[in-house]
Nucleic acid binder design. Structure first.
Lengths: 374, 374
DNA sequence: CTGTTAGCGCGTTCAA
DNA sequence: TTGAACGCGCTAACAG
């Protein structure tokens, strides 16, 4: 299974080899990977000295020797083998990041934040994609443990049942036993460091903003109550309006799946049932909002002129015409990734858990030009 | 720098410890990572036997012992330490993937393909983001070599000068010396396995398709000639038309930067200079095409009715109205990632290089309804 | 400040 | 088939 020619293992001259072979260093270059021993030999020092010279730590090695070692390393193209390092140092310089779908801009932005932040520390990131399959999740958590990843950052909420979640907690706990740290993003209520979007307050803030620019009569498109996040946004929005003395009639609150088509259908229903005096449609996701916008136009309701549209998420903003750009609530996703990494590597007391909430920004765009009231 | 309490290293009882401690296995569980030795002890066999029992290879171990070892491993939650494995087996079960920008759907789709394909082999993928900075590129290639990554998949074309490219080749070659394989995606002409989009033929195919559905008079928006890919698409499109006996007048060929705004400006210029009998605007990227579409409308040119618009790339397709969905050339990006991985791990003769070209699909959408001619 | 030595946790020889 | 011993490449302890 290993392709290395047998019998070569002992071929390397021991430490007792003659010292006049400095000229022979080039010839021995035949394929065999360069080790620290080669560098030490080339520089005429011991392994320990070579190791110390090349290590980051406090320099306890004479400058000239240090220089010779560096030269030798450069000449031989020496690269310290990471696995050998972590064999003795313990803990690899790797972080594991688990997402359900890397093609979703939400996740790829967070991933970017994690990777960039880790790179600043010289760490690298293994990205795993699970598609929310519990089996796959278990697999990657186990692999991360085997790899002795310094941390495991798990992004995305799970809609699974109690037992599925319990099992996940077990697996993550097992990972922690292997010496790593766990950070959850978007998944709240579990006994690990956590970063969650503050759905409710931010949806309420959006409501206030919309009222500020003149909207008074609203319709709301929600989706699956299974999704904790989307319910929170719906509630937050409605509560936010209520605080301002505005009620959304029950007949103007629709629920369906997530997705463009679902938004389209819900908006169609809305129009068929009679839009009445509705001035703005809020959808709990941007995709839903875009679908609604398309349906409104298809049904002859001009938007944003007759009815404004607002969404939530801030991820699916293409370079389209201003009137098609949806007002939304946006999260600093790259920063979120960076924060998750920060949580993962910060020192903390044993058993201490942090919960940080993701700050949001209200982004007002072409889809809600506002209404001038007098 | 290492937090492990000093002095614990030699605390573990040697192989000469009494054998009646089976009941004590649980109590000794205090934090220390479980090693193969623990498993062997628990199962009452030697390390070698435990190792063989747990290894995938040809089973040369009695069934009952095998069972005992498995039970012990499960009981102790044993996870073989990857770094120790690759210390002796050589070669880690890790692949490095280098992209310039993971938030770009082009790259995140390819990454998804690579990660999924690797997962099927039980390999995991480290993703590095370089933002096209040569220094960062050099860094991650070096880290990948230190990590002994099995392969390095480098995605995206470089627009750097000759010397920058030469240095990149050197670094990648050094990586190969470290025992890994190199696969390039979108970067052609370098001495490694390569996957490239067939820009020219696919642009020509798009041209044929557009002629098929009735278009005869074209304008073309290109961008920076530094980008090899975009020039090829431009040439391919124009040549494709020429084969059908259609010439694009030089005055209808514009060049600028890439991006929405650039497309917008170029289309403005086009309108100001007189659109004439132009029936379709082809832009060498989707983003450019969307910008052009916006500008046309802003200038009162109805699209797709008066002028159709086509783009290239197929990545920036949001869930918008049909009329805003741009006809384009689309690549199977996930599949490309999977192919790149396949190239990376396939066995091949020494020095053999493959070049595979990325198959494209012409996607006709709302922005080019066609023209009925009689 | 330097060199010698002892492992890290595994897979894999070589005898038995 | 099994076990003892070796070594992968490296860092950390211990002497000099």
């Amino acid at each position: 299974m290993v392709e290395r020619p047998a019998g070569k293992r002992h071929a390397r001259p021991g430490p007792d080899r003659p010292e006049d072979d400095r000229a022979g260093a080039d010839e021995a270059d035949a394929g065999r990977p360069v080790t620290l021993r080669d560098v030490a030999g080339e520089a005429g020092v011991s392994l320990a000295t070579a190791s110390r010279a090349l290590s980051e730590g406090p320099r306890s090695v004479r400058a000239d020797l240090r220089g010779r070692v560096f030269d030798a390393a450069a000449k031989l193209h020496y690269l310290p083998k990471a696995s050998a390092r972590s064999a003795v140092r313990d803990g690899s310089r790797i972080v594991s990041l688990v997402v359900s779908d890397l093609e979703d801009p939400y996740f790829s932005s967070i991933a970017t934040g994690v990777i960039d932040a880790a790179a600043r520390d010289g760490l690298r990131v293994i990205v795993d994609i699970t598609r929310r399959e519990p089996r796959r999740e278990a697999e990657v958590i186990e692999q991360a443990a085997a790899q002795r990843s310094r941390a495991l950052i798990f992004v995305g909420s799970r809609y699974g049942g109690k037992d599925v979640t319990a099992r996940l907690v077990d697996e993550l706990t097992a990972f922690e036993r292997s010496g790593g740290r766990v950070v959850l993003v978007s998944q709240s209520g579990l006994p690990f460091d956590t970063i969650v979007p503050d759905n409710r307050p931010s949806a309420a803030a959006l409501a206030r903003t919309l009222v500020d620019i003149g909207y008074r009569r609203f319709a709301v498109l929600g989706h699956s109550p299974q999704s904790v996040g989307s319910s929170e946004r719906l509630d937050g929005f409605i509560d936010g309006l209520r605080m301002l003395g505005i009620e959304v009639p029950e007949s103007r609150i629709l629920r369906g799946e997530d997705g463009f088509d679902s938004g389209y259908r819900m908006a169609e229903t809305l129009v068929e049932d009679g839009l009445g005096d509705t001035e703005l449609v809020f959808a709990v996701s941007d995709t839903l909002a875009l679908g609604a916008m398309a349906a409104l136009r298809a049904r002859g309701v001009s938007t944003p002129e007759r009815v404004g549209v607002a969404g939530y998420g801030g991820t699916s903003i293409g370079p389209y015409r201003p009137a098609d750009q949806v007002t939304t609530v946006q999260f600093a996703l790259r920063e979120t990734g960076a924060q998750a990494y920060g949580l993962a590597v910060r020192s903390r007391a044993d058993g201490e858990r942090s919960v940080v909430s993701l700050p949001a920004t209200i982004v007002v765009r072409g889809s809600t030009p506002g209404i001038v009231r007098d």
